[in-house]
Amino acid sequence: MIPAAFDYHRPASLDDAVKLLAQYGDEARVVAGGHSLIPMMKLRLAQPGHLVDLQDIAALKGIKDTGAGFEIGAMTTQREIIQSAALTAACPILKEAAEQIADPQIRYCGTLGGNVANGDPGNDMPAIMLALDAVYLAKGPAGTRELKARDFYESAYATKLKEGEILTTIRIPKPPAGHGSAYVKQKRKIGDYATAAAAVVLTMSGGKCASAAVSLTNVGDTALFAAAAGAALVGSSLDQAAIDKAVQAAVGIAQPSKDTRGPVDFRKSVAGVMVRRAIEAAAKRAR
């Protein structure tokens, strides 16, 4: 549990951080809250020569209400998300998910940006971003570009983020008022990754489901957006048959691997149970 030697950089501005990444290329890694990268370094599974710590960059912090949505700085911590009344009022699934990440001490350090940018299929926030149709802003030497969360994840630890780019902002559209949402996660203990977890965001109109987004955590090599599951709900009254269909569609794309959490059939089955419970909870909360 002793990391290899590295140089530590603590730039005060985003431009300086981007410059450092350009200078050191694939030798450099940015570190946000450090709760994924530092353990990997202690196990020597990651041995970056240069660590670029983003914590002094004020521009990467804070939650801004833009009317249509929120712009959340990548270095905003999970605790700050939990504490934000505005965010919770408009988009309660963020708080619900953040509260299921690790423990309070880690939530003081762990950041939203780090959680979504690392590409770890066990992280909880990517599935939330898929369900909310979030957009990530990435800044690199060539400027800033927008990346849809639903296109962002390629495979475990591999994302659309290019070498030298820093994920700076998460842009979340406000779900319609009266929407219902839920994030239901099964884990073995505090601090564990999900055996399976499901996020659901849906709206109801005249007793019928008007829109629905369903996503899954840790049952594939990325967070999974279950488009067909959402489609199965739209137009229905969220009756058992529709929910069954959605569950079936979601489980259909789950490809968990066998691990200490359990064998494949169990984890798939749990994914289905999580989806079902998330739909039921979201339906209850929708107006």
Binding site: T195, R261, G262, F266, R267, S269
Partner: peptide, 17 residues
Amino acid sequence: HDHWRVWKTAQKLGLVE
């Protein structure tokens, strides 16, 4: 008696698919 083993027990008894 972790989650998956208990579930497997339930499965063997026909309580879950």
